[in-house]
Nucleic acid binder design. Structure first.
Length: 137
DNA sequence: GCCAACGTTGGC
DNA sequence: GCCAACGTTGGC
């Protein structure tokens, strides 16, 4: 199983909206970056991802499951990009903020910190476990 | 194929 | 609202 992190601006698509979709999940569309696309193409059904709120909040608020592997993004007219379907699993008891991660040496190499514009990114098993613990899970 | 100009993202 | 980082576009 692999771990990931996906970003969304809450004003565009929030964790609350994702939760409201329930087990049916929702297509994670609109990614228009090739690095992010490559990561999405590596996602397998059953992989898990952190759901991060960018701009407002700037914190990891929950965990989602990948429920459908990559397929062409229906919102992309060029047909070049892909999306996956995700469903909300559970929220972190305590959201983990970017601020917290930046001040912890263990996360100095995280893509979230080093490549702040990358909207879909891998998370190592160690990072995953540490963040879950910090989030109260 | 290089690179300047421009657009977008996201932290501050 | 600003700006740094980075991706994309288009002229040459």
């Amino acid at each position: 199983m692999n771990y990931w992190l996906v970003k969304s601006e809450p004003s565009v698509w929030s964790w609350e909206q994702q939760v409201a979709k329930g087990a049916k999940g929702e297509a994670w569309t609109g990614v228009r970056n090739h690095s992010a696309k490559l990561f999405m193409m590596q996602m397998k059904k059953g992989d898990r991802a952190f759901f991060y709120h960018s701009n407002e909040g700037k914190e990891i608020v929950g965990i989602v499951d990948i429920i459908r592997e990559h397929y062409p993004d229906p919102t992309d007219k060029t047909g070049k990009f892909v999306c996956v379907d995700i469903k909300a699993d559970k929220p972190l008891k305590t959201p983990v903020t970017l601020e917290t991660l930046k001040h912890d040496k263990r996360f100095a190499d995280m893509a979230l910190i080093k490549l702040s514009r990358l909207s879909v990114q891998p998370v190592t098993t160690d990072e995953w476990k540490a963040i879950c613990k910090m989030g109260g899970l």
